[in-house]
Amino acid sequence: MGLIGDLMGLPGVLAAGEYSYRGDRFSYEGQMTPEMARMASIMCRATHMGVHMECDMLGVFCPGCGLVPSRGWAVRGPDFSVCVMANVFCFADNTAGSMNRILKLMHASLDHASREMI
């Protein structure tokens, strides 16, 4: 079924999708308009690039520590959370969703993916 379909099968997941690192394409499934998904792709890509840069700097201070290089990130608001790993994003409801299950699926599918941002 693929990672996006698997994520959509989890309870509380509102939408999931992929963006290209070049910023020229995106695809998604779930409860979003295409314009919302385009905005989500722009936001997730921008943050992912920033986190990547910051972790490279962090690595200067803790070379070889388990936080670097970065695989992804997540933010949590009062009702919703966003999880991003590699070029895959997932929007979830905090009450019905489980960040552990979302990230576990992402780890299982993406831990061996190339880290080159192409």
Partner: peptide
């Protein structure tokens, strides 16, 4: 989503 309450950094 606002206010952002938490951030998670997923490292290697």
């Amino acid at each position: 989503f606002y206010p952002i309450e938490g951030f998670t950094l997923i490292g290697m």
